[in-house]
Design a protein around this nucleic acid. Sequence first.
DNA 1: TCTCTATATCTAAAAATATCAATATGAATT
DNA 2: AATTCATATTGATATTTTTAGATATAGAGA
Lengths: 103, 103
Amino acid sequence: MMSMNILEAFKALGNPTRLAILQNLREPEKHFPPQDEGDVNVDGVCVGSIQEGVGLSQSTTSTYLASLQRAGLVTSKRMGGWTYYKRNEANIKKLIELLGKEL
Amino acid sequence: MMSMNILEAFKALGNPTRLAILQNLREPEKHFPPQDEGDVNVDGVCVGSIQEGVGLSQSTTSTYLASLQRAGLVTSKRMGGWTYYKRNEANIKKLIELLGKEL
DNA sequence: TCTCTATATCTAAAAATATCAATATGAATT
DNA sequence: AATTCATATTGATATTTTTAGATATAGAGA
């Protein structure tokens, strides 16, 4: 299990789009359309759907998701041609606990 | 009382120096020298002492402190020629609670 | 008033980030 | 194998952040 790093998490979330992505992923079915393959609640949301939500280019969206993943805030799962991203709830919880202690 | 903004807090703390300043201010007497006027625990720490700790220029240190203050994470008090900065514990608590709910 | 001393602000340069278009990759299908 | 679709990566530019030096300000004391 990844050990969370406060600074890296802050850097990733200090951007309005990346913060919004993580927050929207709290209630996937509320913010993203249903998917043919993969349940948004179970498997995560594909990059294309996330891109529509944020209104930025495909490449920027992909880069942002990679950044959130490096910070340990989301996980990705490849299924066929799609990549599904979802929140890493365990790490987010860990981060909040860490903040309570060290911030 | 200022209402905390998650994004602004993340932006301010997504910098290693600013994060370290806030963390060092948790235990002022452990990280900063005693002051002739003003108790580091009660009144806060003057800019000069904070600057020594971070090893950056006076102007940068002052700018960083202003940024932390705009984000609601510290307060400042002017006494004579010195400005003393201390943590805004109420807002920091509020921020952590907000993160627990909204992040 | 003149001069220190501490801090804030202004200006400018260098470094990092944001962002997109183009291209590459990889899986599924024809 | 050629095509298509979704995503990742690369290359390039625009914007923001970082950072320091110079200057301004304000209080304390000679």
